[in-house]
Design a protein around this nucleic acid. Structure first.
Lengths: 223, 223
DNA sequence: CATACAATTCACCCAACGGTTAATTAAAGT
DNA sequence: ACTTTAATTAACCGTTGGGTGAATTGTATG
């Protein structure tokens, strides 16, 4: 969730004397450590003891605040989704000419995945478990992506201006944009191994982004 | 590996009296059970006892034949790669006109992923572990996909005939074809949950395949 | 300064897990 | 038939892992 209100102290939030007990801080330390642990080892591979250790927190606290390993995973997922949704909304795509808006979305998606590899890994884990944590989460269900509406608006504008082809399904397009980036990055280890070339270099990255833009714009733009 | 030669018996292979001991059969039972277990629960979530039970085999046999859980996983991966590579080679893409060849590859990839969801899951697991099993496998390293060469040939022919655009990188194209199918199918649970619609219906599948063909051909075909 | 509650620690549980030792038995070779 | 070897079983082991009960200590409040 978002930054919780600090407890009322006489001090300013910054430069506060280091309190020995701070539940918000502990929660956040746990969440951050859990995010990395789950992303690095998957849900089953993750170790609660390691999370506690790397958060510098007693293991019991994890159960005190989050109840169980599964509930902790749910909390991590919720935070991860909240983060990317928030970032998406900073894009202001509706204010851009349609082709630029699409390109911007592609570049954002690509860069976000590169900067947040743990997001990809968490989604993989959640899918392995058939999204059962998401199903149980009230938060994310309501967080029903407004991005599709935004995309629909952009596609409509582009179509009216005669620059986009007709009949594009915004959800399909969104999944394609995500998929073109996701697969390359999430499967980079097996792909690198099979193709015998390192896909994670700076050069390889910019080539891939360029290719993705070509594919998406090649599809969206009318001939 | 491939079908091992049967031990010399006086009987025909089919209708053979059920031998009480059959190492090849046991190996295969273990491999099949392991494939499903690893795909269903990931490497860490998989249980050797469950594999033994569902293969109807004593747990000790797994270690007798495969050495360790990790080595078993490697064997499963090798078998999975061998299977898709074999299937790919049945396509005879070089005998088709370039646009048909591309479409055929797209349809094959899509259908193969649908029919072999465990393949996607195994790859996810392997990537979570940074492809360390693939790296240690001699088999797969040499299995260096001839599909890229095939694609290159098709792209060259299409270019010369003036129907394909210039400058297409076959590896990028392959990753895109795979990615457009993979992401939708592998992440269908989270996507279904977020979009609030079931992506695994027959109708949704055919819509997705049609979209992927549009995207890939929209990119590949010259205007 | 006493009280009360929230945050944190400590020690512990036990089921499950990957793996192993050693005995046993079916079948191929002679 | 007998021997040898490969396939299979039974029982066991040490450790790890998620989770808990209950005590303890910091801190805001009256």
């Amino acid at each position: 969730m978002d930054q919780p209100s600090l407890p009322m102290t006489t001090n300013t939030p910054e430069q506060a004397e280091p309190r020995q007990r701070d539940s918000d801080r502990s929660r956040q330390l746990i969440l951050d450590a859990a995010r990395d642990e789950f992303a690095g080892h998957g849900l089953s591979g993750a170790r609660v003891d390691r999370i506690a250790a790397s958060a510098s927190v007693n293991k019991r606290l994890i159960y005190y605040y989050f109840g169980s390993k599964d509930d902790l995973f749910t909390a991590v997922l919720e935070a991860a989704y909240a983060a990317i949704r928030t970032a998406e909304q900073q894009l202001h795509l509706t204010e851009l000419p349609p082709p630029y808006a699409i390109r911007r979305l592609v570049e954002f998606t690509w860069n976000y995945y590169i900067e947040h590899p743990e997001f990809l890994s968490l989604l993989n884990s959640e899918n392995l478990h058939k999204a059962r944590h998401l199903e149980h989460s009230k938060q994310i269900q309501t967080m029903n992506t407004p991005l599709i509406q935004t995309l629909e608006e952009i596609l409509g504008r582009g179509r009216q201006a005669g620059v986009f082809r007709a009949g594009i399904d915004p959800m399909q397009l969104y999944i394609s944009i995500a998929g073109l980036a996701y697969f390359y990055l999430s499967n980079n280890h097996t792909l690198s191994s099979i193709f015998g070339s390192n896909l994670m270099t700076h050069k390889a990255h910019s080539e891939r982004l360029s290719h993705i833009c070509d594919v998406i714009l090649g599809y969206v733009l009318s001939d």
